[in-house]
Amino acid sequence: MERVLAIVSPVFTPLGRSLIAASGELGRWCEFVWQAILWTFRPPYRFDQFSKQMEFVGVKSTWIIALTAFFTGAVFALQSGKVYSLFNMESMVGATVGLSLTREIGPVFAAIMVTARACSAMAAELGTMRVTEQIDALETMAVNPIQYLVVPRIVACTVMVPLLTMLYDYVGVVGSYVVGIYLLGINEGPFMHRLYYYVDADDIWSGLIKAAIFGFLIAAISCYMGYHTRSGAKGVGKATTRAVVVSAVTILITDYFLTTWILEYVINRQ
């Protein structure tokens, strides 16, 4: 028995330790999110902070979202057009791009772009505030830092990521239209007809629900990482990197489970 333990423990001890550490971290994150939810509904309501964050997350991300959406739709149209041309079905390009954008690419890419542009900044800003004692200063001034700093960021992301997803869907379809009609020479009538025929309101809604959930998660993760920063400038860098990596991975993993749920209960029910 001792011999077995001697062989097994070098492998399983670190594994067990990291599992315990990970579950501890998850527990602390859940507590943090719960606090943020509670403080969302407690006065005072800081509308100036909400609008400031909405501008930062939403308005200031508009151009980068539009740019990436246009080229995503364009390249998708180019690739699918080449494949469909083998079967003489080029008119399906609009519908294919429309469905992919509204259901998957729009919410996922919009959330990833917001993670890269806004959530990384959130983690760095909160991290710097933590290591320079600005968060402690807020507490000493009888201001709850979760309510003042975290709640507006989470609310802003939850509201703005779906709006940016709508923009992403629209501009992406424009990109596919430009490439499909003017570059691949697809007939406009069938292109638009298929797009209208296959893309339903439910496809758009399901994407927007996903986007709101992604927005909530990436803001909650990034704020958590920044809020619990330690060890000076190095800690701020580490927290920012972790915020981006964990948010991106969370978006992709959550997307799979949300898609399973949406396909089962929203789209297949019809």
Binding site: E133, D136, A137
Partner: peptide
């Protein structure tokens, strides 16, 4: 009063 003043940047 904090050690490095902790003013909001």
């Amino acid at each position: 009063l904090f050690q490095n003043a902790a003013l909001f940047d």
